[in-house]
């Protein structure tokens, strides 16, 4: 009896309802999808694209003793056309012609790259240890990694001054245990910048690597061992390749902000290491040359867009 009812029910669904429902489904889902995609899109356009275009426009303007300190300003609609004709690439030519900027860019990228590698070397074992810890501990360990975020970034960087300065905590400690007889000069050197960046960005490297290691099936390494592979070899053939998405995500999360970093080089690096963030700041506030400052920023964005696009491609492939 039960069997006699079922085919009928299936039949009914097939003949009428399902078709209509599908048609309606597509319609409402289409609208829903547009809203879902549209909201963040408008958000990005309003909060990122428009300000960026304003910066691009300023970078094409000329310095002027005025408020704001550049021309043209596009305040009055009647002057828009003549304003457009005044836009110029002079600032970009200026940046290209002065070694100072080139050096700042290369130094920034080099420091960002080196500190990304250093961060990776510290974060990977950390994340590995966290992922291998008993499950009950893991939440606590993740909390410890993000604990520094509860304090202001600026204050934490200032704290490093207290640690690294010649009469600071580190030197006092090293001298009291007799390891050194004279204070080490760390503050206001590139070393201090590395320490600051590695310290500040460690969580951004650790967490994605931890996430990829933690969700890895433990039986994979057992299977590798079962098939005759010793532990270290299993790490390089199985564990590490499978954690690469996390490693790559972490590297981008560190490299991109580190390249434009201003606070850390300014507070810890002293005046001799001129990174690009500091350069923008100097142009903007010391020279009051907004157009050149904007041009420097636009070029930095252009340089970083390349790795960002690679990053996005990579993420899309993983997803």
């Amino acid at each position: 009896m039960g069997e006699a009812v079922k085919p009928g029910a299936v039949e009914r669904e097939k003949s009428g309802g399902a078709g209509n429902r599908r048609k309606w489904g597509i319609g409402s889902r289409g609208l829903f999808r547009r809203v879902v995609i549209g909201v963040p899109f408008l958000w990005l356009a309003g909060l990122f694209l428009v300000p960026f275009l304003i910066v691009v426009k300023i970078s094409l303007s000329q310095t002027a003793v005025a408020i704001p300190p550049y021309l043209p300003t596009f305040g009055d609609p009647s002057t828009w056309w003549s304003g457009l004709t005044q836009l110029t690439l002079d600032n970009y030519v200026w940046i290209a012609s002065d070694d100072l900027y080139f050096n700042a860019y290369t130094l920034s990228l080099a420091i960002a790259a080196a500190s990304t590698v250093l961060t990776l070397l510290i974060a990977y074992p950390l994340a590995y240890g966290m992922a291998k810890a008993p499950p009950a501990w893991r939440i606590t360990l993740v909390m410890l990694v993000i604990l520094p975020f509860w304090t202001s970034f600026l204050i934490r960087v200032y704290a490093w001054i207290a640690i690294l300065k010649p009469e600071g905590l580190l030197n006092q400690l090293l001298m009291s245990i007799g390891l050194i007889s004279e204070p080490l000069v760390i503050l206001n050197t590139p070393t201090a910048i590395f320490i600051g960046i590695v310290y500040s960005y460690l969580p951004f490297m650790t967490l994605p690597i931890y996430a990829s290691l933690e969700r890895m099936d433990h039986s994979l390494t057992e299977a590798a061992a079962d098939l005759g592979s010793p532990p270290l070899k299993s790490f390089w053939t199985i564990t590490f390749p499978l954690s690469l998405p996390g490693v790559i995500a972490g590297c981008f999360l560190v490299f991109i902000p580190a390249a434009g970093e201003f606070v850390i080089p300014d507070l810890l690096g002293g005046s001799r290491t001129l990174m690009i963030g500091k350069t923008v700041w100097l142009e903007f506030f010391t020279n009051r040359d907004w157009p050149v400052a904007s041009a420097v920023a636009v070029v930095l964005v252009a340089i970083l867009v390349v790795p960002i696009v690679i990053f996005q491609r990579q993420q899309a492939r993983v997803g």
């Binding site: 099936d217 039986s219 994979l220 299977a223 061992a225 079962d226 098939l227 005759g228 592979s229 199985i238």
Partner: peptide, 17 residues
């Protein structure tokens, strides 16, 4: 150790790489 034993295992989850 497991990697020197003359046995092989087919895992419940298959554990394919």
């Amino acid at each position: 150790p497991p990697y020197r034993r003359p046995v092989n295992m087919m895992f419940q989850s298959y554990a394919l790489f």
